[in-house]
Amino acid sequence: MHEIQIEYFALLREHTGLKRERVETQAATVEELFAELDARYQFPPMGKLKVAVNDEFHAWQAPIKQGDSIVFIPPVAGG
């Protein structure tokens, strides 16, 4: 069990009603964590997502560690 922090932006922030939350999770990877949260919040379809761990892009298979800060990144639209 790891305690981690998740920060939400844009569509995810509006959908969850949260800017950030602390979560205790059994997920071993960020992909498993996303599945846990999707089951809880029923995220709307968003297309291709990326993920950041501790403010750097990571693969979905990245392991979850105690104290990690995680951000799920829906398709971006700068410019």
Partner: peptide, 28 residues
Amino acid sequence: RVPIWKKEHYLNGDSGWVNCERCAGHDL
């Protein structure tokens, strides 16, 4: 590549996050 999101507000009162809405599912 830069994580910036754009929410458009339309004349008809709707709004939407560009590139995120009306997708079929999640693709990881």
